[in-house]
Design a protein around this nucleic acid. Structure first.
Lengths: 338, 338
DNA sequence: TTGAAAGCGCTAACAC
DNA sequence: GTGTTAGCGCTTTCAA
């Protein structure tokens, strides 16, 4: 059985109150008493019951993070990086992170309700923002603290941190154009994601600026997974069998799909970087280690995760926020793939 | 302000107890009363305060998972897969997962103490078992529920689930030998890990069985990261510059290092699978998508994670365990890399 | 400087 | 069937 305040108080023949105050470092405790309490508590192995403290203080020092997975077997290095950023920063503030994984839908909704109404956590992190995201509406309506990774068009003055997806994809596409590419394909993300629209706009903007007509057949949808990128690329290659219509550069909405596309190109006996250039978005760790290394738009996922957590902690502690909205400039990282 | 039992009780002019019992589905509540309670609670948006319930019931329906990271920027798909398995299974039992990330050391130890003594969670998952693992000793001593991913030599009848690492690495090495390789290098894991010893034994066993003398220079240490595998391979290549002493096959203790080794081989202008065969251990998702796809020893991380969580939930709910120790047979997955 | 008492929201033993 | 009461372990007024 764990040692409680009561145990320590009984042993010292003091009241629970005094022990509590001594431990909390209140100044209205005699120095001698404090010493006795501290050493006895230490010696008895007293550790406060976190749950009791939560109930009393009406806060849990815990942040909720519901990972939206597409299918049960999610496996996206993006979330790994993000989790690292969130987790480390949380630990630095002595906060915990409560993680759930849910496919968007009724279960996800139930998970949010339990977290919010059940006062299970003090705030939540929202990622992979959707158009007209119900999560944002819900949390705003409940006045529950949250911070978004990425922008959204849902009105309101809630905090978000992200990179300018339009600019990022614009930079990548322009890089392709400047390298002499004219037939550039785009592997898009499901359109219900905000960043899908965001990034695609950058792609089209770069084409328009260069006077390259938009060709619908060169835009194809992927599901953000590596497998999805692979399939999309296969489809593109079969759409354009002849050498003079085949795309010479591929911009993928995220790195995972870009890596899948690379595999498809190589399976077709073509050389990535030579025959077909490939670029992605995110700069997840495997991007630097692929063969050839992937050209991509860097989004500092780890740092953004840390910043999101920092902001959220400030928010739940009612500290003033320096900035509610942070839009970082993405950086084009040119490697061997294109 | 969230709706409490008291609010519902007041509105219905009932006692808190009756409301609580009606909601919990006790049979000693009049059917009519139950109906009134249910509909009013629903309508008022009542959701139980999880923290209060936890305090009262002396359990949290939460499982702790402290990820041991080597350095702050951990990025290992292994944990991603594992998290998915743990998280989905936890959700199926209406359990939550509390995640922390800590570099092994004093902070990690403090995190365990807070979780255990603070009764923050009902049980914990232990991964990447170390030799003479203090976590296992500590949890056993405190009689705190835990389940290990992987075996250990710490005595005691605690539950673990894992694959036979010796057999797995033996199968991979034997495969290399049967393919005609004689000079096989091994990229080892830091020896404080139990599985490092485990797997290396399989490597040596296969060599011994084939009468291939053990050459210390062909064994090199890596740190389990992709970068570590890359550096280890570079070192191996520089150790054996001449074509007739160069290793023709590389067995890496995990996939991440195998992928790094592949990159180093390719950077040296050699062909993976042709000039040098490469094999790993784990079968993390990127292994199937690398170029060439990685030959590896499959460890069903997702399923093991789910099984670990299932066992842990049974444990904390005092359900009988069918098996306390599960050692799965690993499966050799032969792909293009070797 | 210390202690008594209240109460966070919930459940459960025990009356009635 | 329903209500009263106690208490999980903690913090924090308020008195003494």
């Amino acid at each position: 059985m764990p040692v409680t305040l009561k145990d320590v108080a009984q042993k010292l023949d003091l009241s629970i109150t005094t022990v509590s105050r001594a431990l909390a470092g209140y100044s209205d405790v005699a120095a001698a008493t404090r010493q006795r309490v501290l050493s006895t508590a230490e010696e008895m192995g007293y550790v406060p019951n976190v749950t009791a403290r939560h109930l009393r203080q009406q806060r849990t020092d815990t942040i909720g993070f519901i990972i939206p997975s597409e299918g049960p077997r999610f496996s996206d290095p993006f979330f790994n990086e993000l989790m690292a950023g969130l987790g480390n920063e949380a630990a630095a503030h002595e906060f915990d992170v409560l993680v759930s994984i849910h496919v968007p839908g009724v279960e996800e909704e139930a998970a949010y309700r339990r977290m919010v109404y059940g006062r299970r956590v003090d705030g939540v992190v929202i990622v992979r923002i959707r158009h007209d995201d119900w999560r944002i509406r819900f949390l705003q309506q409940e006045a529950f603290p949250f911070v978004c990774f990425g922008r959204s068009e849902v009105p309101g003055d809630y905090p978000y941190i992200g990179v300018d997806g339009t600019l990022g994809m614009y930079l990548l596409t322009r890089h392709f154009i400047e390298s002499g590419h004219q037939r550039i394909a785009y592997i898009a993300a499901p359109p219900h994601f905000f960043f899908a629209t965001d990034r695609k706009a950058g792609f089209r903007q770069a084409l328009a600026e260069a006077g390259i007509p938009l060709e619908k057949e060169l835009e194809i949808l992927g599901d953000l997974t590596q497998q999805g990128g692979y399939l999309a690329m296969k489809e593109l290659l079969s759409r354009f069998p002849s050498a003079d219509t085949k795309p010479t550069a591929i911009a993928a909405c995220n790195d995972l799909m870009a890596l899948g596309a690379m595999a498809a190109i190589q399976d077709a006996g073509l050389d990535v970087g030579e025959d077909i250039a490939v670029g992605g978005f995110d700069d997840i760790p495997p991007a630097a280690h692929s063969h050839p290394p992937l050209t991509t738009v860097r989004q500092p996922i780890y740092q953004i995760g840390a910043q999101v957590m920092r902001t959220l902690v400030q928010l739940v502690q009612h500290e003033p926020l320096a900035q509610r909205h942070i839009v970082l400039e993405p950086e084009l990282v040119i490697r061997k793939s294109g």
